[in-house]
Amino acid sequence: MSFSYGGYNFDVAALSEKASRGKTNSDFTAYVATNGGNVSPPAAASAAQSYYEDNFPDLIPFLQVDSEFINAKHALVSVTLNETKLDPVSFNTTGATTHINQSLLTRGIYAAPGKIAPDYRGAIGVSDSGVSGVDVTVPAFEFSVRKKFEFVSTSYLLAVVSMTGRTNSTAWSIFGPGEALFLGGEGGEDDNNWVDITYHFAARPNQPALQLGNIGSVSKRGWDYLWVKHDEEVVGDRVLQTPAAAYVEQVYPDGNFAALGLS
């Protein structure tokens, strides 16, 4: 594939394995760059980088561009799309703890002899001072993905930083929008000079149709925060704490997980 960009013409060069420095395990292309005059290898490399950024943005996390003199009129520009190796994931499904003030369903109400048990419409632990609620275990899936690269750019690492603490804005892997949370990554070079990165995630299922007391069809994404406001309601000669409104709050910003280069 030959192309012109940034004042340079790039023609594919056929190199021997020795000349290509043995890059046989990568998607490697060498170009002879000319501009009709004296060439600057750094400028030629910058033009090639810009061409790929504008035309193949999905490849940027894996792109490495190098250049060197051939002679005053020609520069050798090599473009490497670095091969990756994906290791098995580690995972944990033991769940997480959250505090709720409202039950999914009141299975029974039992009054003492001669007493009337009020219906609090699912509010848990009601007293004169308010609704105390209870801690429960909810589904949670924590997992890590380990990926190795021959090379990663600073811009890619900054993208990883910016994605930390974000949920997926669109469907990603097996998760619906809002179900996956990126916790961050860690890594460094291994003994073979590969960049070894471990990505950490957590996931919770979306809940599109919750019923909370008399409040129905509450839609909550996995990492949204749900809370219930209780009002005092006079029933007979008693003042009861009952659910009056449910609020679903977004507490994590969305992000495009495609920036991580994981599928």
Results as ranks from 00 to 15, higher is better:
residue 35 N to P: 00
residue 197 I to R: 08
residue 214 N to G: 15
residue 146 R to C: 04
residue 95 G to M: 10
residue 122 G to Q: 01
residue 238 R to S: 10
residue 35 N to R: 07
residue 45 A to L: 00
residue 10 F to T: 00
residue 169 S to Y: 15
residue 206 N to D: 08
residue 219 S to G: 05
residue 103 S to E: 02
residue 78 S to A: 11
residue 253 P to A: 11
residue 22 G to P: 09
residue 87 D to T: 14
residue 258 A to F: 06
residue 258 A to P: 01
residue 66 D to N: 13
residue 55 N to K: 14
residue 145 V to T: 07
residue 25 N to G: 12
residue 212 L to S: 02
residue 182 F to C: 12
residue 2 S to N: 14
residue 124 I to H: 08
residue 110 Y to Q: 13
residue 148 K to V: 00
residue 58 D to V: 09
residue 185 G to H: 07
residue 72 A to W: 02
residue 69 F to R: 06
residue 191 D to C: 13
residue 6 G to Y: 10
residue 71 N to W: 03
residue 84 T to A: 05
residue 143 F to S: 07
residue 99 H to E: 02
residue 98 T to M: 12
residue 205 P to C: 13
residue 88 P to E: 11
residue 135 D to L: 08
residue 222 G to D: 12
residue 27 D to G: 01
residue 96 A to Q: 13
residue 111 A to M: 05
residue 221 R to A: 08
residue 54 D to I: 04
residue 260 L to R: 11
residue 238 R to G: 00
residue 34 T to N: 05
residue 14 A to H: 12
residue 1 M to Q: 07
residue 190 D to T: 08
residue 56 F to A: 09
residue 249 E to P: 08
residue 102 Q to H: 10
residue 66 D to R: 14
residue 261 G to M: 06
residue 108 G to E: 14
residue 254 D to Q: 15
residue 242 T to E: 00
residue 107 R to Q: 10
residue 242 T to C: 06
residue 141 F to P: 04
residue 76 L to R: 14
residue 136 V to P: 09
residue 178 G to F: 09
residue 60 I to V: 13
residue 123 A to M: 09
residue 193 N to C: 04
residue 57 P to E: 10
residue 196 D to G: 13
residue 92 N to L: 01
residue 37 G to Y: 02
residue 19 A to V: 04
residue 104 L to N: 06
residue 18 K to F: 12
residue 80 T to Q: 15
residue 140 A to H: 14
residue 49 Q to I: 00
residue 29 T to Y: 09
residue 22 G to E: 06
residue 125 G to C: 13
residue 13 A to R: 14
